Amino acid sequence: MTNTVSVILLAVLATAVVIGLIVLAVRLTQRPRNSLIGGGLGPALIEQVLELKAVGEFDQAVILVRGETGLSHRAASRVVRKLHAPAP
């Protein structure tokens, strides 16, 4: 009886460890929340964002950056705020 209980407990423990390792592996391989999908902002996207900022459409610029990059709202807002038109 004791051997059966020990085997069952050992099997449950081993299963829990394997599931924990799988969950850890999945989390480590996922894309970080605020990383850029395409590797960065392209010149065309920057130009569109600057045009939207110039006409006072900050929220639309943030939505555009979020849609193109996958950034969170907070991170996209920071990006839009920091973008400035190049000096002539």
Rank of each mutant, 00 (worst) to 15 (best):
G67V: 00
L24H: 13
T15M: 11
L9E: 07
V23D: 01
V62C: 04
L45T: 10
G20K: 09
T69P: 00
K53Y: 03
V7A: 13
S35F: 11
R74D: 07
P32C: 02
V80Q: 01
V12W: 12
V26F: 07
P88M: 01
G40M: 10
F58S: 02
N34Y: 07
E57W: 02
I22L: 15
L45V: 11
V7D: 08
G70T: 07
L13Y: 09
E51P: 01
V12D: 03
T15F: 14
S35I: 05
I46K: 09
V49W: 00
L21A: 12
V80L: 06
L64W: 10
V62R: 05
E47P: 00
Q60D: 13
E57L: 08
P43Q: 10
T69Q: 06
A75Y: 08
T4P: 06
D59G: 09
M1L: 10
E57I: 06
D59S: 12
S6T: 13
I37W: 12
P86N: 06
L28Y: 13
V79K: 05
V7R: 12
N34V: 01
T15I: 11
I8L: 15
E68Q: 12
L36D: 07
S6D: 14
N34W: 02
D59W: 03
P88F: 00
R33F: 06
M1V: 10
T2R: 14
L24N: 12
N34R: 07
Q48N: 14
I37F: 15
L64C: 05
G38N: 15
A75H: 00
V5G: 02
A75E: 10
A61Y: 09
L36R: 07
G56I: 04
A61R: 05
T15E: 01
L24G: 04
G39E: 04
S6K: 14
A16F: 13
I37Y: 12
L64Q: 08
P86I: 05
T29K: 13
A76P: 03
L83S: 01
R81D: 03
R31V: 06
R74I: 01
L45Y: 02
R81C: 00
G42S: 14
S77R: 12
